[in-house]
């Protein structure tokens, strides 16, 4: 099989590019901080039984460690609960997000905190939150004819202003 030498050169460069891409992604996955993908760690649950769930029945933020918080979020047509989600600054927050009805999205606008929300599955993502501020949250997966109104708010407040509980 005759291959022109320029083509061989391009084949080599193409492979180099591909390996470079895989290497970059791998670097992101093991570097500091190591970027973790949404995985299969979360539980499964019946979306119709969410209201009886110990955490999702009354979704909100709770303190689980020294500077660690857990935020239980329910996405449903066409809202996020709780809204707003209030967390203190300079903490590590793990979001547990599930759906009560159809597939939704959960995206903290302008950041990399982003996940699909699939009924029956709990999406789990941990982020480090530094400065106080406000972020919009959007549902980025079509979820019905009111989809465009589905938004939320993430409020990061200074630690001394945080009242420690549910913002609802």
């Amino acid at each position: 099989m005759h291959i022109h030498q320029y083509e061989k050169l391009w084949l080599g460069l193409s492979l180099l590019l591909i390996v470079g891409f895989v290497a970059t992604v791998t670097y992101g996955a093991v570097g500091t901080p190591a970027i973790s993908m949404i995985g299969d760690d979360g539980d499964t649950l019946n979306p119709n039984a969410i209201d009886d769930h110990p955490e999702f029945g009354d979704p909100g933020v709770e303190k689980v460690g020294e500077s660690e918080y857990a935020a239980y979020v329910v996405a449903r047509q066409f809202m996020f609960q709780p809204d707003p989600i209030v967390v203190p600054a300079n903490t590590t927050v793990t979001f547990y997000v599930t759906s009560a009805d159809v597939i939704h999205g959960f995206s903290v606008v302008g950041t990399n905190a982003n996940t699909m929300v699939i009924p029956g599955e709990v999406a789990e993502l941990t982020v480090e939150i530094n400065d106080p501020g406000e972020y919009g949250i959007v549902c980025h997966e079509y979820c019905g004819n009111g989809h465009h109104g589905m938004e939320g708010l993430l409020k990061v407040v200074p630690a001394d202003e945080y009242d420690g509980g549910d913002a609802e």
Binding site: D40, T115, E121
Partner: peptide
């Protein structure tokens, strides 16, 4: 499905 819960990172 990179951002789907319920699928392990290794498969992704």
């Amino acid at each position: 499905q990179y951002l789907d819960p319920g699928i392990a990172e290794s498969f992704k």
